[in-house]
Simulated assay, not measured.
Amino acid sequence: MSDPAVSQSGHRELVTFRVGNQDFCIDIMLVREIRGWTPATILPHAPSYVLGVINLRGSVVPIVDLSARLGLQASVPDDRHVIVIAVIENQTVGFLVNSVSDIISIDQMEIQGTPDVTSETTRAFIEGVIVTEERMLRVIDIKTVLPKSVEKRLRDE
């Protein structure tokens, strides 16, 4: 079965963003919206990378600090940060990022595998790497970034 995010021409559209001083991207088909930072309601005993939940038009949406989840320095959210709202299967999740850069269209063949010198965790989170003249983008496998409880719920559905 082919990936629905890859067009028949083999092109894929990705939303690029910054987390800390690093460049990442995810498939545009997973992105529902991009919104400004909204303070989250803290949930007791949530993992340290889960900032809490927000009300998104009547739905309770967990917010994941993508920087902390990827093992970078935890973010201190402010008005310049944005939340990328993504829908993974039937779960809506917000990911806190520093900024959204642009949308790119690339050939699937341009995505290089994650180098073998990285850790298992890195290979689990990173689907591949795109090298351009200006920067190096990591393609995130957003399902693996979800908190374990959300991943389990998705598997059980």
Rank of each mutant, 00 (worst) to 15 (best):
L72Y: 13
V131K: 15
V76H: 15
N21E: 13
V150H: 03
S99D: 09
V84G: 07
I103T: 14
R153P: 08
R12C: 08
P47C: 09
A74H: 06
V82E: 00
R69N: 06
P47Y: 02
I34F: 04
D141S: 05
T121Y: 14
R32D: 13
I111T: 01
N90M: 07
P44Q: 10
R153S: 15
R135P: 05
W37A: 00
I83A: 04
E110Y: 02
E120R: 11
T121W: 09
S119K: 10
I63P: 01
I34N: 01
G52D: 00
V60I: 15
K148E: 15
V100W: 01
A124E: 14
M1E: 13
V100C: 00
R138I: 13
I142S: 03
V76E: 12
Q108V: 12
Q8C: 01
W37F: 13
T122A: 11
S48V: 12
V93L: 09
R57S: 08
I126W: 09
S75Y: 03
Y49R: 02
R69S: 06
I88P: 01
I88Q: 03
K152F: 08
E110T: 11
V84M: 15
Q91T: 10
V64D: 03
M1K: 14
G58A: 07
I54F: 02
A86F: 06
T92D: 06
R135E: 13
G94H: 00
V150K: 05
E157H: 08
T114S: 12
I54T: 07
K148N: 10
V82C: 00
Q91L: 07
H81Q: 08
T132P: 13
R80P: 01
V139G: 04
R123N: 09
A124W: 06
G58Q: 12
V31N: 09
D65G: 05
S2T: 09
G94Y: 02
R12L: 15
D65N: 12
V100M: 05
Q8W: 14
S101R: 10
N98F: 00
T118P: 04
H11F: 11
P47Q: 07
R153F: 13
L70E: 06
A68P: 01
T38L: 04
P39R: 06
I54P: 01
G128Q: 05
D65A: 08
E120A: 10
L72H: 14
M136Q: 15
K152G: 05
N98Y: 00
A86C: 15
G52V: 12
L154A: 04
R80V: 04
I130N: 03
Q8F: 10
R69Q: 07
D116M: 07
A86L: 02
A68Q: 14
L96E: 03
H81M: 07
T122M: 11
L14F: 02
T16H: 05
L96N: 04
R155E: 15
V64R: 01
R18D: 01
M109I: 14
I104S: 09
M29Y: 06
C25P: 00
R57A: 11
V97C: 03
V61P: 06
I83P: 00
N55M: 01
T121V: 09
S67Y: 09
E33M: 11
S48G: 10
I103H: 08
T132L: 13
G128Y: 08
Q108S: 15
A68C: 14
R12D: 04
V139C: 10
N90S: 10
T144R: 15
V117F: 12
K152S: 13
